[in-house]
């Protein structure tokens, strides 16, 4: 059998230096570092993310489909998932609105105490979540500073789903502010002046010019706040009251299952939350790509 000469060993082409042709798909570069850093990246991602998650899914798989569906379709589990995901969504949307306003004020205006306000935004990042939870519970309990007046109006916050949302807003706020802030700082005030010269009202300028420019960052920030809130445990369990079917969150249910030694059931709930988070990130990625369609093509 005769073989055709491959175009690769065509004698007319001078051999390229070895450091330029190690990988077929790799763009040749004289700057070293790809191999080493890529190796570390794969190692680290596996160690920190893939192996634990894989372990969880493997454990879930020991249940079999029927047991899996039974484990996650009990009313108590469904109620907990609904509260964790629904509450996180509501909290993220509220954070999107108020976080943007805070970012706007911090970027656009100079006022005494601005640096302090800016630092305060990071408190929810830094504070141990349990401390935050206890503080919020004290504040919103029926005899608390805020809880007492609200109670007179007939609004109960502590030990209700409302309390869960309050705690989730607290932990999610910095994500929105810190992602929107730099984008807003880069937004040239000239484009607002341009809108003003074109006789746009202030509201039209915000809706048609500023918000669309912020949208990609806002989506990212909201997604981060949401992702954080779905899995939030520490700050919620104190204020939630943890009434099954009412104010019990999914992460708490996982802990309860673990304490009952139902490890597989616990991982089943975890798997549902993981799949949900994954779908959510996928959808947000699509949304982001769409909202950035005008950038350098």
């Amino acid at each position: 059998m005769t073989s055709l000469p491959s175009p690769l060993d065509s004698p007319t082409l001078p051999p390229s230096p070895t450091y330029l042709r190690r990988w077929g798909w790799k763009r040749p570069s004289v700057l070293p570092g790809f191999g080493l850093t890529m190796g570390f990246t794969l190692f680290w991602l596996s160690l920190i993310v893939l192996i634990p998650l894989g372990g969880m899914i493997l454990k879930t798989a020991t249940l079999g489909w029927d047991a899996f569906f039974n484990a996650i379709s009990t009313p108590r589990v469904l109620a907990a998932l609904r509260l964790s995901i629904g509450g996180a969504l509501i909290a993220a949307i509220i954070n999107a609105v108020f976080g943007s306003i805070i970012a706007w004020v911090l970027v656009r205006y100079r006022f005494p105490g601005r640096r302090l306000a800016d630092a305060l935004v990071d408190i929810p990042f830094a504070l141990p979540t349990a401390v935050a939870g206890i503080a919020l519970t004290t504040l919103f309990a029926q005899n608390g500073w805020l809880g007492a007046p609200l109670d007179k109006l007939g609004i109960q916050v502590a030990y209700t789903p409302l309390g869960v949302i309050v705690a989730l807003i607290f932990v999610g706020l910095p994500f929105v502010v810190r992602t929107v802030q730099p984008v807003l700082a880069d937004l040239d005030p000239e484009i607002e002046e341009a809108a003003l010269c074109l006789r746009a009202s202030r509201w039209q300028t915000i809706r048609r010019v500023i918000l669309p420019s912020l949208f990609p960052a806002l989506v990212t920030g909201t997604a981060l706040a949401f992702a954080r809130a779905v899995g939030e445990y520490g700050s919620v369990i104190f204020i939630a009251g943890n009434l099954p079917m009412v104010s019990e969150i999914a992460p708490l249910l996982i802990v309860i299952k673990l304490e009952e030694f139902s490890y597989a059931e616990a991982t089943a709930i975890g798997t549902v939350m993981l799949s949900f988070a994954f779908l959510m990130l996928l959808a947000l990625n699509g949304l982001q790509r769409w909202s950035r369609r005008y950038e350098e093509a």
Binding site: E190, I191, E193, R208, V209, P212, F215, Y294
Partner: peptide, 9 residues
């Protein structure tokens, strides 16, 4: 405007 200030989106 000097840098045009076009609406990017």
């Amino acid at each position: 405007f000097q840098h045009y200030a076009l609406f990017r989106h």
